[in-house]
């Protein structure tokens, strides 16, 4: 179980990347399957060639960043459908990853990795390493939350929210999408680098179907912990990633074998997507929306019907229907 939590925290870095594209840019980016392996491949091959293991995270960041830029360019400048652009990059990366590794599997046995000190200290599989991995994931989540509240980050959020509007305020939405995809895949690449060092090898197939794990983490976490603010949302993604790995672990302990896990993942995502639409959950969500204090106050003050009141500008908020749902 501890290993499942550790893995959940490491894969949470990838899930944060998926959050940026899927929730902020409203762009389901399938590059992830490729860029994750790219990050792992770059890290593994660098370590084998004697690069400082901590530096490999930076290299993986850059590699993932570039992968995201490619998808972004295909989508914005090449006007290719977003899903297709991601798949194209992902498939192209398969060959590139093989080129980077020169073979399908690069073992890191006996190499000094960023995880080795933890292993030597006997922390792996215990609360010590869970604490460290959690600290790293939360730190990255906090940085992401900070970024999304900067002027640049607000422009990125608006790009996914209302493209026409943000263009009218002078933002080049193409650049925003490219930057968002790049940052997302950079995080995914870093996650790949950590996973490779954690499990002691990089493998050409390690990224296959990973986007589902990322989406599952985002959707699961946010369905349970909500999206009241960006900060809650990013922390929910981390929690979702851990829950996802724990769920997988439970599925294994009840007798399913590892080959069934892709099916389990897919079913988990379907459940997380469909259940919140059920009547019971919808009603709960409506109640949460109504909890906005200003809205409640305004709803209490009926719009005046006299002409004098009307020209004075009614405190306006006769309880007309909210114009959009409050979830993200």
């Amino acid at each position: 179980m501890n290993t499942a939590i550790e893995l959940g925290l490491i894969y949470a870095i990838m899930a944060l990347g998926v959050y940026v594209t899927f929730r902020i840019l409203d762009f389901p980016d399938l590059t992830v399957d490729g860029s994750f392996t790219t990050g792992a491949a770059v890290a593994a091959i660098s370590i084998v060639n004697g690069v400082n293991p901590y530096l490999t995270f930076l290299l993986a960041f850059v590699a993932g960043f570039l992968a995201g830029v490619i998808t972004g360019l295909l989508h914005t400048k090449g006007r290719i459908n977003g899903l297709l652009a991601g798949i194209l990059t992902q498939i192209a990366l398969y060959s590139i990853n093989l080129r980077i590794m020169a073979k399908a599997n690069v073992p890191l046995l006996g190499e000094e990795t960023a995880i080795s000190p933890l292993k030597d200290a006997g922390l792996i599989g215990g609360w010590g390493s869970i604490g460290i991995f959690a600290a790293v994931a939360i730190l990255l989540a906090l940085i992401l939350a900070w970024f999304l509240h900067t002027d640049l980050g607000l422009a990125m959020q608006a790009t996914g929210d209302n493209e026409k509007m943000i263009r009218s305020y002078g933002v080049n939405t193409d650049n925003q999408k490219i930057l968002g995809l790049a940052l997302s895949n950079a995080l995914v690449g870093v996650s790949g680098a950590v996973v490779a060092q954690f499990q002691g090898f990089a493998d050409i197939g390690m990224g296959i179907g990973l986007i589902i794990a990322g989406l599952a983490s985002v959707i699961l976490g946010q369905a349970i912990f909500g999206t009241r603010s960006i900060l809650v949302a990013v922390l929910a993604v981390i929690a979702g990633s851990v829950l996802y790995r724990v769920a997988i672990q439970l599925a294994l302990t009840v007798g399913l074998d590892p080959n069934d896990m892709k099916l389990v993942s897919a079913v988990l995502v379907v459940i997380a997507l469909v259940v919140p639409q059920m009547p019971f959950f919808r009603r709960r969500k409506a109640l949460v929306n109504r909890a906005d204090p200003g809205g409640a106050a305004a709803a209490g003050a009926e719009a005046p019907t006299s002409p004098a009141g009307a020209t004075a500008g009614a405190p306006a908020g006769a309880p007309d229907a909210p114009t959009a749902g409050g979830t993200r």
Binding site: D151, L152, L154, Y169
Partner: peptide
């Protein structure tokens, strides 16, 4: 004309930066 998932103040901050370069300053 507005971004529905952003707050009123965040929408205002976006408008405040009309045509300016947006960097890592607090929104």
């Amino acid at each position: 004309g507005t971004a529905p998932h952003l707050s009123i103040e965040e929408n205002m901050a976006i408008a405040d930066k009309r045509g300016a370069t947006r960097m890592l300053g607090r929104g």
